[in-house]
């Protein structure tokens, strides 16, 4: 059941006596890309963790909706795709083996032709596909990670600093692919410091500062969203 809305209500998180997040409320919609901005330690990663169900909120609640239905548990996780600066793939397994494992865990088709088609789409070098991932370049790993995320056809795509370690060309290309994902109706949430890579693709900006949501704005969707200067301006005005 593809998710089309995630509602975060007054969510807070404390670790022991440290508070990482205070009463954050945010609504995420399908076909929209939300940029979650803020300094290190502002609570972005915690919020992403809560969205991915791997961190339990201390207060508040979060609901995942598919149309009128609330979705819970394993069904939510099936819909989540994660793309992080780490590849989420095993270095000692080949591209095919990595994807086949994911396919089996998610119970989606992962026969060789299907995986080949997917790897063609992300543009992973044909000669590399049967080599273990440890031997890949940073760019190749990122392609594999993207293929991994796309394999399960997620409707909630979480991006945790996906541009870290990529060169400019790679980052822009990834940004483009994320734009495509968004066009398919997925909810995309991106945590990043690389404003350039997401410029022109994001239509929803949320800025966190010391665990609080200090700014949120949505631009009426005419395709473009925020350009680089607008993002930079917002970041400097609100994140500090």
């Amino acid at each position: 059941m593809p998710l089309d809305r995630v509602v975060i209500e007054k969510v807070g998180k404390r670790y022991g006596s440290e508070r990482a997040l205070h009463g954050v409320s945010l609504e995420l919609r399908g076909g929209s890309m939300c940029a979650l901005l803020g300094h290190n330690g502002a609570g972005k990663t915690t919020l992403l963790g809560i969205l991915s169900t791997l961190v339990r909120a201390s207060d508040g609640k979060i609901t995942y909706r598919a149309g009128d239905q609330a979705v819970e548990g394993d069904d939510v996780r099936r819909e989540i795709g994660l793309l992080a600066h780490a590849s989420l793939c095993y270095g000692e397994l080949t591209a095919f083996e990595n994807l086949a494992l994911v396919g089996k865990l998610y119970e989606v088709a992962s026969d060789r032709p299907a995986l080949t088609a997917l790897l063609d789409r992300v543009g992973l070098d044909v000669r590399a596909r049967d080599r273990v991932a440890r031997t890949y370049s940073r760019g190749m790993l990122q392609r594999l990670a993207l293929a991994r995320a796309m394999l399960t056809r997620p409707s909630l795509v979480l991006l945790d600093e996906p541009f870290t370690g990529l060169d400019r060309g790679g980052a822009l290309q990834l940004g483009e692919q994320l734009g495509e994902l968004r066009a398919t109706g997925a909810i995309v949430v991106v945590v990043t410091h690389d404003l350039e890579a997401i410029a022109g693709r994001t239509d929803h900006v949320a800025i966190l500062q010391r665990g609080r949501l200090v700014f949120e704005e949505r631009r009426p969707d005419d395709g473009g969203g925020y350009d680089y200067d607008a993002l930079k301006d917002l970041y400097h005005r609100h994140a500090n």
Binding site: S52, T53, L54, R77, I80, L82, A84, A86, S87, L88, C89, Y90, G91, V102, L105
Partner: peptide
């Protein structure tokens, strides 16, 4: 490679 996160997800 943060694969534990992937497994738990």
């Amino acid at each position: 490679n943060d694969t534990m996160r992937a497994l738990l997800l």
